[in-house]
Nucleic acid binder design. Structure first.
Lengths: 344, 344
DNA sequence: CTGTTAGCGCTTTCAG
DNA sequence: CTGAAAGCGCTAACAG
């Protein structure tokens, strides 16, 4: 008879352990472990006995014990600022899906809901093998670096940093293309709405806007600072209506901004794109529902999330971190808010 | 001098453990544990020594070891079907935020990306103290029940089941109110679009639609079956345009359906709400951007997520499960797609 | 093919 | 206020 687990004299169903299962099946814990991990070969009869015991006791293994023994958590951490809008949700879905394929759990941390994010991230590091942080999650760079010394880290759409692997969607060239498209409709007073200093993503979009002007020997205006929110969009639209700005085209840092601006302008009687062309970035669902349809850029967000999970896994596996940021291509989605004619 | 940890003769920074920290600080591991948990009182000098050692070694505790020792994971599991659309994202945000307040990590499982969700859920049970499952996550009821025998479970917006705690948003009364509102605009051929059998949520909305008719001595039509997707909405709109259905009002099971139907109809020249009134459910962002604005119902999704996390925590704390489902109130959002005049 | 036996790294009495 | 020691439940050699 197998040795009785010293700490659980009676095998209460509520706290079935590998010991109670072994007892119940009349085998050793090693055997139980074997059939549950399916690694080594076990006699079919034995195997059945164990499975039956597991079933009868409703045994649920304690993950922590396994993690301790195998010396890794089999889990990836993901740090995102929040989840409003389709962007982060899509990213998360991509991440989760790939993590699932790799048999990794995902533990999620949303920094906007935290008062002490440093603590949250430290705590996270405690229970995962590797961590992906979204660039604008605004985690202190030194925290990231500290972490990096302990666990693999990849930054998604963030500032490239020494020794920290990065993945991102392409911004500059598509922004250049988008801005060029608008300019080629004959618009000459295009404004960029958004804050280039809020992160590399927006910075690159603005740079693309600049480049498109430069390509055509045109002068580009200073960016109109705005955060990526409906509120800031509405506020800007109001100022535009009040005559504080003059423009025949607006290149907005993202769709939310573009959409709120467009609606506010339309409600005030302005014609889009007649009076003013408007383009955004992200291709959110609303973009194809508004009239005119919003011309924008679609990012491979899902793939970006998957890529992050992938890299995490490889890094955990011992692969050396890549020194260059991996860029995923984006795609221009032309509808009619840019001045193109409807295709009916 | 503190005892040397048998298994780690040298304290490599990469694998700092509580032993290396203790060594480095010249104290026992018990003391290190104490200052890190902040429970018992430790002499300030000792405390500092330990903190310094932690800092110098870049010590990151192993969560699994703690979990094993304290006998719980300090983590909540959340099972959702997916994350597209604002509904689940919002739910998740509410859940995460409250879990964070309760110092619980959240590990997420998305069932739509899984081939073997039973395995996924089992695996999840392995690393969390309690699990919240979204009703339509389509987890076999017996799986839920099995789980429930081992770990606290709460079902969000799902079928009420014996002994399993449930939380949900109110549907029936607000559906009745919404349908009544439409009928009171004089519409007499209102159709319900959605599948009442797809879950209690939709079922209750349909029941509310029925009740509103009954209240007025009107006959209600059979529901038009459709899944909650843009594709199904478009398809239905097409059939409507082809004359397969006749209606002067549409009560859609959710906003995505309503929106796609509305747009398709409008693109074909139909006037909304002139020819046909349309209302949805959820109040997604797009609902306030389309013209006419979509009349819909706003659910307290964030709160629902928070509530689930709350209940999980209490259940883990030993509180007995509530026998009745907790309902959160919803709110009718009247815009103009229902036939109301714009308020300008 | 199966059982024994060390740990995995941390918490927590129990002494002192 | 601090240290010693006994586990927490599981995996993985190592024998047999």
């Amino acid at each position: 008879m197998a040795k009785q687990h010293p700490a659980s004299p009676e095998a209460r169903s509520a706290g079935a352990t590998i010991y109670s299962v072994a007892d119940h099946a009349g085998v050793s814990i090693a055997t139980v472990s074997r059939v549950l991990q399916g690694a080594t070969v076990v006699a079919e009869a034995t195997r059945q006995k164990v499975l039956t015991a597991v079933e009868e006791l409703g045994y649920v293994p304690t993950g922590a014990a396994r993690s301790l023994a195998v010396r890794h958590h089999e889990a990836h951490g993901l740090v995102l600022p929040e989840l409003s809008g389709p962007y982060y949700a899509e990213l998360l879905m991509g991440f989760e899906a790939r993590a699932a394929e790799l048999a990794q759990s995902v533990v999620l941390v949303l920094t906007n809901s935290r008062t002490d994010m440093a603590a949250a991230v430290r705590q996270l590091a405690t229970r995962v093998d590797a961590i992906a942080v979204f660039g604008s999650a605004a985690i202190p760079a030194d925290l990231v670096r500290l972490l990096r010394a302990k666990k693999p880290v990849v930054v998604i759409a963030g500032e490239p940093q020494d020794g920290i692997e990065a993945v991102a969607a392409e911004n500059l060239e598509s922004a250049r293309e988008l801005a060029g498209h608008v300019l080629d409709h004959g618009r000459r007073r295009a404004l960029f709405v958004g804050d280039p200093d809020s992160g590399p993503d927006i910075r690159n979009r603005y740079d693309g806007y600049l480049a498109a002007h430069r390509d055509r020997g045109l002068d580009a205006a200073e960016p109109v600072l705005a955060r990526l929110s409906e509120a800031d969009g509405t506020a800007f639209a109001q100022r535009l209506l009040a005559g504080e700005h003059e423009a025949d085209a607006l290149m907005c840092a993202n769709d939310e901004l573009a959409l709120s601006i467009m609606t506010t302008l339309q409600d005030a009687g302005r014609d889009v794109p007649g009076d003013i062309a408007i383009v955004g970035w992200d291709d959110v669902m609303t973009a194809r529902y508004v009239r005119p349809g919003l011309t924008t850029v679609r990012q491979p967000v899902h793939e970006l999330g998957a890529l992050a999970a992938d890299r995490l896994h490889e890094l955990v596996g011992g692969e050396p971190p890549r020194t260059y940021a991996q860029m995923l291509p984006t795609r221009l989605v032309v509808r009619t808010s840019c001045g193109c004619l409807p295709v009916t």
